[in-house]
Amino acid sequence: MKTLAPVAIAFISGIILVVSFFFNESTTFVGGLSEEILVWVTIVGGFTLLLGVVSITRVNLAAVRARKENWVYRLITLISIFAMAIPSVFPSSWSPLFGRQTGSIYDWLFVTMDMPMMATMFATLSFYIASAAYRAFRARNAEATLLLVTAVLVMLWRVPIGEAFLNLFPGHIPQLINEYVMNGVNLAVQRGIIIGAALGAAAMSLRIILGIERTYMGRG
């Protein structure tokens, strides 16, 4: 039953959604059924988020109680989660500090702490990228040289001063990069990757619908 029920749900839901693609969504029974399933999916999705909160709380709370290594950071994680979550779930009609609107606790924490911290973390990547580019970009062979030259040209093209520099040379180099590198070679390669990934996703979906692929249940 533990295996049969998820496989049956996946099969029925999958088939309905595939079949509904060929029917009018608002006027047919199959269309209505698929609409209902999609609403269920968003509800289940909401519960998975809740499951995530429960899981992270259980794991970290146990570590804090046992005073495991770095337990202070785990405590900060827990405090952060609930400091943002609790005031945001209460309705703003109770107090302007509740809810998620401008002026609420959630909003204040998000704007003054979450946003700058995340932006800072991402910004530090520029330091690592500069260091990594310096170390890794070596024209060791023909392929690496091609990659290096293309990367340098695109980097120049994507900034105004670089574009001005490229325009010092004859032949409208910036336009050529846009036309032949980005809308030419790059486009062709990306299209191949997208088509390949889409075929892979279709094959995987079919395997799940037919019950061949069962790893999503936590077993093979």
Binding site: V152, M155, L156, G162
Partner: peptide, 9 residues
């Protein structure tokens, strides 16, 4: 920064 990276490369 782009120019710096190119110079470093």
């Amino acid at each position: 920064v782009h120019f710096l990276i190119i110079a470093l490369v």
